[in-house]
Design a protein around this nucleic acid. Structure first.
Lengths: 343, 343
DNA sequence: CAAAACTACTGGATCGATCCAGTAACGTGA
DNA sequence: TCACGTTACTGGATCGATCCAGTAGTTTTG
C-alpha cells in the first residue's frame, strides 16, 4: 500500500490539499471546525508528515548538522547532549557524524551534511584540520557555520570555554600551593584549546618563576590509557615535577594509575589537576582539582548562536566569539599536597 | 543567487538533465567522455547534490535514525560511534536524538525520525518505555526497527550483550574467590539488561549458597555520584557484603570513592566488580574486575542487522535476537581480595 | 443598495533529482 | 540495402508539501 499523503487526507476530509496544508501549519485563517475535521481525517488514515517534501519546497530542513570528533570523551558527550536539548526545544533535529579526529572523514562528513540541506552546521574540528579546507567546502553554500570548543582564528563564529582564563585560574592555584615545577600531560598534539590552556598557565608561571619546560609537555590520546602512557614516559625520563596537570580529566585517571603503580600517591607525593570537571572527577581518589568548563553551557550557547545565524545569516558585527567563563574546583589532589621542605 | 541544480549543470555541459543524473549515479551507459564533461561542469558551477529531492523521488533517504537515551555514559557513546562507523562505511548518515530516559521525549523523537523518512530506526529504549507505545508509533510505517542494548520481549529485532551469560561468568568468579554475600549497586530501577545480569548471577549464587538479598540490590543514577550515593545507603544500613557488584563500570568509580571515604579499601577489605569494561576500568585503583560487553561489536552487529532489514524488511524467520558474547576481565578489585578467615 | 472588505477556501505551479518510455544516429550482418 | 541491434541520449511525469494568485460567498460600510 502506498503512503498516505496530504492529498489523501484532504480528499477524506472533503477539502483541498491547500487547506489541509494550512491546517498542518495551524494557520489562523482556517476555522476550528475545519481544523478538527482535517485532523480527524489525519488520525483516521494514519497520516505521517513527509518533511522531505516540505524541505524541498521550503528550503528549510529544520535540521542542524553536528560534526564532532568523538563522543566517548564525556566532555564532548555533554556538549552533544546540550546541543540536542536546545535543538529539540526549538523543533530542530540533529544530524550527527563523528570525524574521529580524521580530517578526510571530517571533509566527507561536512559535504554529506550540506547535501542533506542542514540549516546550520556546528563543527568541533578535528585536531589537525585547517580552516582553508573547511572554508572551501562551505564556499557557495549559505549554510551558517559555528565552531565548537576548538577554533582556528577570528574568521568564524565560535563558542567554547575561556581556556586562557581557565589556565590562569589553575596557574594561580598551583602558585598558591607553593609548587615550583609543573608537567603538562596528555591531549592532542595541537588544538586551540590545548594551546590556550597552556598559555594561560604559562603567563602565571613565568611571572611566578614556576618551571614548565617543553620537555615536560607530553601529548597523548585523550583516554585514561593515554594518560598512563604519557605519565610513564615522563617518569621514565627521570623527572618528578611537583604538579602534573592533565589536559583533561579523562586523562587524569590514567595519571593516577601510573603514579600508583610506581608507589607515588597523587595528592600527597605529587599534586595532580585537570580540566573540564567531568562527572567522576569528584569521585576520584583523591578527588581531582580541576577547571570546570561547563559543556552544557557551551552547548546551549552554541545552539543559540546557530539559531540566530539561521535567522539572520550575515550580522553586521562580523564573526562572534563567545567564551564561557570557567571555574576552579579545588579538591584534595592539589589541596592536600605540601611542598617538600628544603632539608 | 539561487542554488545550482542538475538542470544548470546539464545546460552548462550541453546535455540533458537525465544524462547529468546518470553521470551522478555513475551509470555504465554513459561514455567516459561525457562523464568527464559533466563532472567538469559540476566542479565549475560548484554544484551541491540535493539529497532531499532524490529522497522524495526515490523513497530512500540513506539515513538511519538513532534514538538513544544518552551518551554521557561511555558505554552508550561507544555504541553510538560504532553505529556511526558502520553507517559511514555503507554511505548512510545518522540522525540522532537523546531521550534521556524520558518516554514522552522518546515518543516525540521516534515520530520526528519517521517524519524525516529514515530508512531504518535503531532504538535504545528509555528505561520505563513500553513496547505498545513504540509499536503504535511504528504502525503503518514500513520502517524497520532494531532494538539496541535493551529489549522488551521477542517481538522485535534486537542486538545486545548476552547479559545472562555475563552475569553467570561474574557469578562463578565471585564464587571462586570464596565470597559469601553480595550486594548489587546502581543502574535504573528496571531495564532488561539489569534483570538479565542479576538473573545470571543469581542462577550461580543460588546453587552455590551465596546470598544476594533484595535489600542489597539498590538502584541509582548511572553516574559515579549515583554509585557513591547508593553505596552510602547500603553501608548506612549496616550491611557490609563480601562483594559489591556495580551494574556498570561508570558506577564503580563512585563505589570506590564511598568505600574509601569510610576507610574501606576496595580489593582488600571488600571486592568490587562491574560490567562493560569501559576505557578507564583498567586504570582504576585497584583495576576493576568487570564483564566486558564490547559495545563496538554490538554497534556493528546492530548496524548489520538494520541494513539487512532495509534490504529485506520481512524475513521468514521472524524476529532475530543477536547476543554478543561477553568476556570476564579479572583484575585486582576482586583478585586480591581474600575471605575473612573465620576466627 | 452598491462597493468595499473580509472569510474560507482552491487549483496550478513549484522545489530538484530520478524514472520511464522513447528516439535519433550509427554499425552490422544477410 | 534494409531490418535489426546497439549506443547515447532525451523530455515529460513524478515524489508530496507549500506558495501564490485568485474566487465564491458573506458581511460591513458610506
Amino acid at each position: 500500500m502506498p503512503r498516505v499523503t496530504l492529498a489523501d487526507v484532504s480528499r477524506h476530509a472533503g477539502v483541498s490539499r491547500s487547506t489541509a496544508s494550512l491546517v498542518l501549519n495551524d494557520s489562523p485563517t482556517i476555522p476550528l471546525s475545519t481544523k478538527t475535521r482535517v485532523r480527524q481525517a489525519m488520525a483516521e488514515l494514519g497520516y505521517v508528515y513527509n518533511r522531505q517534501a516540505a524541505t524541498l519546497r521550503n528550503q528549510k530542513s529544520m535540521a542542524i548538522g553536528l560534526a564532532v570528533t568523538e563522543v566517548s570523551n564525556p566532555y564532548f558527550a555533554e556538549l552533544a547532549m546540550a546541543l540536542d536539548d536546545a535543538a529539540y526545544a526549538n523543533g530542530y533535529t540533529v544530524v550527527v557524524g563523528y570525524s574521529r579526529d580524521d580530517t578526510e572523514r571530517q571533509d566527507h562528513l561536512i559535504s554529506t551534511l550540506l547535501e542533506r540541506g542542514v540549516d546550520g552546521l556546528i563543527l568541533l574540528p578535528a585536531a589537525l584540520s585547517e580552516a582553508t579546507s573547511i572554508d572551501r567546502l562551505l564556499a557557495g553554500s549559505r549554510t551558517p557555520l559555528v565552531l565548537l570548543a576548538r577554533h582556528f582564528n577570528l574568521a568564524h563564529d565560535y563558542v567554547g570555554a575561556d581556556n586562557r582564563t581557565g589556565g590562569q585560574l589553575l596557574g594561580r592555584h598551583i602558585q598558591s600551593i607553593g609548587a615550583r615545577t609543573v608537567a603538562l600531560v596528555g591531549g592532542p598534539e595541537y588544538t586551540s584549546a590545548r594551546v590556550e590552556r597552556t598559555e594561560g598557565m604559562k603567563s602565571v608561571f613565568d611571572s611566578a618563576g614556576i618551571r614548565l619546560e617543553p620537555s615536560t609537555v607530553l601529548a597523548s590520546e585523550t583516554t585514561p590509557a593515554g594518560g598512563a602512557k604519557a605519565t610513564a614516559e615522563l617518569l621514565d625520563s627521570g623527572i618528578l615535577p611537583d604538579v602534573i596537570v592533565a589536559y583533561s580529566d579523562v586523562i587524569a585517571g590514567g595519571i593516577y594509575a601510573e603514579l600508583h603503580a610506581r608507589g607515588l600517591e597523587p595528592g600527597r607525593d605529587i599534586a595532580v589537576a585537570g580540566f573540564d570537571d567531568i562527572p567522576g572527577s569528584a569521585q576520584m581518589i583523591p578527588p581531582l582539582t580541576t577547571v570546570a568548563t561547563f559543556p552544557n553551557k557551551i552547548g546551549t550557547a552554541c545552539a543559540e548562536m546557530i539559531f540566530s545565524r539561521i535567522a539572520d545569516p550575515e550580522p553586521d558585527n562580523g564573526h562572534e566569539h563567545v567564551l564561557i567563563e570557567p571555574r576552579l574546583r579545588i579538591r584534595a589532589s592539589t589541596a592536600s599536597w605540601r611542598p617538600r621542605t628544603p632539608s
